[in-house]
Amino acid sequence: MTRREAILDWIAANGPWAAGVLIVAGIVHIVSILAMPRLAPRDAFARMERLAPAHRMTLLPAASPEGGSPPFEDPALVQGVCRYDLAAGPVRLRAELSSDVLTLFSFHARFGQLYYSMTDRSATRGKLDVLLVTPAQLEAVEANDSEDELPQELRILAPTLQGFILARALAERAGDLDETRKRVMAIGCALAPAAGN
């Protein structure tokens, strides 16, 4: 048997096994990447669950050299979080915002999806009024809408029952940190009274 034949024989004998190994590796890789957001024990939601009670604004600890906060956080941002569970009802986010202070809002679903974001510029005449609902809750709310008036609030559909709203405000200077913290804490986040009552 020549060397070439020996190589071909080896491939004929072991090729299917090698292909099997690669196929299994591919499937395991894809499944594990897709499953990670659902299985990760230390994702953002788990952190919010640990640090913040549901349905109220809570300040998150500022980034520091000692660590403890997630990587790549802007030290100039003051962060507040409102964790929600829409099983208890729709959630209302209310704030009076000044255009002199950059305020950012992002809405996160249970498994790491950022499904909506906006800045203070979304406020009308300095007021922000957001109602966070599930599809069923939206139907109930819309059934109660008056016919000749457009709703004044911004209604956002949440893809999962649980999740969190992150409110971040920029402190222009280190000396503004306290003032900015007060502004973030002044943002109201609470369960909305059930529609129809």
Binding site: I33, L34, M36, P37, A40, R42, D43, A44, A46, R47, P70, P71, F72, E73, S106, H108, F111, G112, Q113, L114, L166
Partner: peptide, 11 residues
Amino acid sequence: RAVLSRTGETP
């Protein structure tokens, strides 16, 4: 999403 779920980062 996998990376973010591991670091706890919020983009």
